[in-house]
């Protein structure tokens, strides 16, 4: 019996070994990531305070979303985040081009330009909320010294979201910069020379010769920026806590507020908001996976 077992194991070892190696990772990932996604779908169909009995209400939560003014504001703010956050990509490219030289000390410059990305978003949020302070902040000190009127960025419902996005762009631009700097390292010098001989320079060279070669960097910059924009939570929580008058909420923040804060424990309603956010993200995830799948097919050995 044991020899039969052994030979079965031996015969199938090329299937069994990878499964054994995958098992712990998959178990963890399914329990904490994959399964909860479906649970959230389910919870979004209930009215539930997280403790007592859950009541099935079908699409009730989603119907409520349709008429929820705060949901609308959050969704609209998410759009602003998505669009404006993409500015990090050209800004990162610009700084990368500026720093792609070999002068003494340039390595240190590159690291110092990059390091806002390493700081936690909580601290970035604090740093910028002090920067914006009406009386004490550096921004207003600069404005008044230029003879301009001081502004209360985070206290003004029309400005606050833009102020937070600007804070978010700071580390995100640094991230895109480093992606492009590594990309520029790999640019083929012969193609650049050939371009020069053909009379291409400046913007033309950038557009026709350099950018096509930077496509992998642009792709990753795009992926991380979209995800970063839709995940924005820390900055909002630290800088305005959704205010003033709820004007800076985004879906991820509004969901948290509904499900877990003093506004009440509405797990079902919160989950419904999360499901909407998930579907927005799914649109992008599908595109990312499709591009990766294409590359994978090409790289098959």
């Amino acid at each position: 019996m044991s020899t039969a077992n052994q030979s079965w194991a031996k015969r199938n070892r090329m299937t069994i070994t990878p499964l054994l190696f995958l098992l712990p990772g998959i178990l963890f990932f399914v329990a904490y990531v994959v399964f909860p996604i479906f649970q959230s779908f389910n919870i979004s169909l209930y009215e539930w305070d997280g403790l007592g009995e859950a009541t099935y209400i079908g699409a009730g939560n989603y119907q409520e979303l349709l008429t929820d003014r705060n949901f609308e504001i959050s969704l609209w703010n998410n759009v602003k985040w998505l669009v404006l956050y993409l500015l990090a990509i050209p800004a990162g490219l610009l700084i990368a081009l500026l720093l792609n030289q070999t002068v003494p000390g340039i390595r240190l410059y590159k690291s110092l330009f990059f390091f806002p990305f390493v700081i936690s978003q909580v601290v970035v949020g604090l740093v910028f909320s002090w920067f914006y302070l009406p009386r004490v902040g550096l921004l207003n000190a600069l404005l008044t010294s230029l003879g301009l009127e001081s502004i209360n960025v985070l206290g003004d419902p029309t400005l606050a979201t833009y102020g937070i996005i600007a804070a978010g762009l700071w580390p995100q631009t640094a991230y895109c910069m480093i992606l492009y700097l590594t990309g520029l390292n790999a640019v083929d010098p012969e193609q650049v020379e050939a371009g020069r001989l053909d009379g291409a320079k400046g913007v033309k060279m950038l557009w026709y010769v350099i950018l096509p070669q930077l496509r992998p960097a642009t792709f990753i910059a795009f992926v991380v920026t979209i995800i970063g924009a839709l995940r924005s939570f820390d900055l909002i929580s630290i800088m305005t806590n959704g205010g003033p008058f709820g004007s800076t909420r985004v879906l991820s923040f509004y969901m948290f507020e509904k499900a877990l804060s003093e506004y009440g424990f509405r797990m079902g309603y919160g989950s419904a908001i999360a499901v909407v956010l998930f579907f927005i993200m799914l649109f992008f995830i599908a595109y990312f996976l499709w591009s990766m799948y294409r590359d994978e097919r090409e790289a098959r050995r």
């Binding site: 990531v33 909860p36 939570f233 969901m255 999360a274 499901v275 993200m281 992008f284 990766m292």
Partner: peptide, 20 residues
């Protein structure tokens, strides 16, 4: 399985929040 890992890595945290 590989794509499951990648896709899961991109999801918004909030959809995991209540169950986790």
């Amino acid at each position: 399985i590989f794509f499951m890992f990648i896709a899961g890595n991109f999801v918004p945290f909030q959809i995991l929040m209540v169950p986790v």
